[in-house]
């Protein structure tokens, strides 16, 4: 089959960062105070962006993609996450 056949189909492949580094959308950035953090992992589960990762059982924010919605800070049961204005 010649290669130039069906070159353009309306198909996509999975891609992280399809809208670029969405961290640039952020106005407020979450900051985790690890002294307060009780490692409950609620922030990981409720993050709408899937941009809080687990590293050695500790939540770690992926600032490349975090849009700064603040859900993690709002839901943290011990107030270990605060939102800091970035711009």
């Amino acid at each position: 089959m010649p290669e130039d056949v069906n070159k353009y189909l309306p198909l996509s492949k999975p891609k992280i960062g399809i809208s670029g580094k969405t961290g640039s959308w952020r106005i407020f950035a979450p900051e985790i105070n690890y002294e307060k953090c009780v490692k409950c992992h609620i922030c990981v589960v409720v993050c709408p962006e899937a941009s809080i990762l687990l590293e050695d059982d500790r939540p770690k924010i992926d600032y490349d993609y975090c849009k700064g919605c603040g859900v993690c800070a709002r839901e943290c049961p011990v107030g270990a996450i605060t939102m800091r204005r970035e711009r």
Partner: peptide, 15 residues
């Protein structure tokens, strides 16, 4: 494979 998400005008013209 994801079929038919948003495509740009230029890419759609190629389709």
């Amino acid at each position: 494979i994801i079929m038919g998400n948003l495509f740009s005008p230029a890419d759609t013209m190629k389709l």
